[in-house]
Simulated scan of single mutants.
Amino acid sequence: MCKNPEKEQHFTIKDLDVNIDFAVKQSILMGDLLADSTNIFPRTADENGNLLTIGGYWWTTGFFPGSLWLLYAETKDENLKTLADKLSSELAPLQFSTDNHDIGWIINSSFGNSYRINENRHDADVILQTAKSLITRYSSTVGSIRSWDKSDRSEKNGWDFIVNIDNMMNLELLTTAYRISSDAVFLQIAIEHADKTLKNHFRSDNSSYHVVDYDTLTGEARKKQTVQGYADDSSWARGQAWGLYGFTMMYRETGKQRYLDQAKLIAEFIVNHPRLPNDKIPYWDFDAPDIPNANKDASAAAIICSALIELSQYVDNRLSAKYMSVAKQQLKSLSSPAYQAKLGENACFILKHSVGAFPANSEVDVPLIYADYYYVEAMIRLKNIYLRNLK
């Protein structure tokens, strides 16, 4: 007998519909704000609650058009499609960029979502060109895609070839390019990068380092550090989220058991952590010294939530129920007044209380566009599971 989603402990289809509708309304209002902005991509809000925007290149620019595409697929609201098309087109020149790794998720969240919805040849071409640009950053010696180029920071830290855990999120663009083109190079590089990350980024407790530096002559790991976490050996919450999401995605894309095993290990680290609060919204770092007074990070919660919902579909019934319970509590918390904005407020971002880069005192306790994206994705993923169970 199929389960009735309306009898679940919390977060029913009705709850999802209410919050998806709010996300649509808030996103349309955000679009109105952007019409008066020189830079058309929302990033965060300033201390006075005013919208802060950016131009075509910043690692977060794909997330608002991505949210619009997700919401359009759910609602068929043409206003969302028009704005999504406009913003995505502004990102098209980035397909030729080879000086950063972020083009992977910039284009995947914008053109990738558009392609999955519309199956448009132009979107496919942009994805393929972006994949070609991204793999110019791959080193066969290291077996990874370089995250950051040489800079004053790399000189200061003595880095040679830096790879961050975030880079797992770029691999979906490569697997999509493989499906479009059947060019096995894209898939092989994604697999090699994931394998190298699995080997070197994780500790014995299955938490991850933020960054690993490699020797370009030997391919061996040289240093394991952090930039955005509390300390080199601490567990930066969003970093754990990237790893969970990335390995869950790589299992979906490849069917390789080692990626599912790793995703489960990361999930267990997160959901069983003694410093995960009752509302399941993690502190910005699981080892922040001022817990329980440390800032919580809604963005990390949204990413974890979306990943747990997907992962719940690949595991046994016991783990599935466990991961779903945490994810639903996260959605319940994020959708409460404690984290969700009121209509027209919060510079028209959906969620409040995210943390960008705490050690740099950058974007602390503010709305962040990627928190909204993964929150929307999580809700739509859960609704689709509910609807499947009703059949």
Rank of each mutant, 00 (worst) to 15 (best):
S67R: 00
A194F: 05
D261P: 10
L187W: 02
V376N: 05
G239T: 00
V227I: 11
G56Q: 08
H193T: 06
Y138Q: 07
P42C: 01
F11H: 12
N118E: 12
L29I: 03
T254C: 13
Q228D: 06
E47M: 09
R179T: 10
G62F: 09
R388V: 08
N170G: 02
Y259M: 15
H122N: 09
E172N: 11
P5S: 15
Y230F: 11
N389D: 12
L334V: 08
D183H: 10
A300D: 00
K81E: 14
A357R: 01
I270W: 09
N272F: 12
L83H: 08
S88P: 00
F269P: 00
G55H: 09
A338N: 14
R153Q: 11
D213Q: 00
F63H: 06
G239R: 06
N278R: 13
A194W: 04
V364R: 09
L390H: 03
D36C: 02
V376Y: 09
K264T: 15
K196A: 10
F63L: 07
E268N: 15
N100H: 14
D32L: 06
E172W: 03
V364S: 08
L91C: 14
A221Q: 09
A184L: 14
A347P: 05
A321F: 04
S97E: 15
G239K: 05
I369D: 04
I369M: 07
M324N: 05
D213R: 00
Y72A: 04
D36E: 09
C348G: 01
H101T: 10
D125N: 14
C2N: 13
N384L: 15
V376E: 11
L331Y: 03
G344F: 11
I117K: 09
L319H: 08
A35V: 01
H201T: 03
Y115F: 15
E310P: 00
S67L: 01
Y283D: 05
D215S: 14
D160F: 05
A35T: 03
G356V: 02
L70I: 04
P65R: 06
M169H: 12
I191H: 02
S97A: 15
Q26C: 06
A360W: 04
F186V: 04
V364N: 04
I350C: 03
S333W: 06
G31R: 03
S140P: 10
V163H: 08
A45I: 07
A300R: 02
V163C: 10
D32T: 08
L171G: 00
A194R: 03
A177G: 14
S320C: 08
E310T: 11
K132M: 14
Q240N: 05
K156H: 08
N170V: 01
I309P: 02
T248C: 09
Y115N: 08
L128N: 12
F111P: 01
A267F: 09
S325H: 06
G239V: 02
A190E: 05
L390A: 10
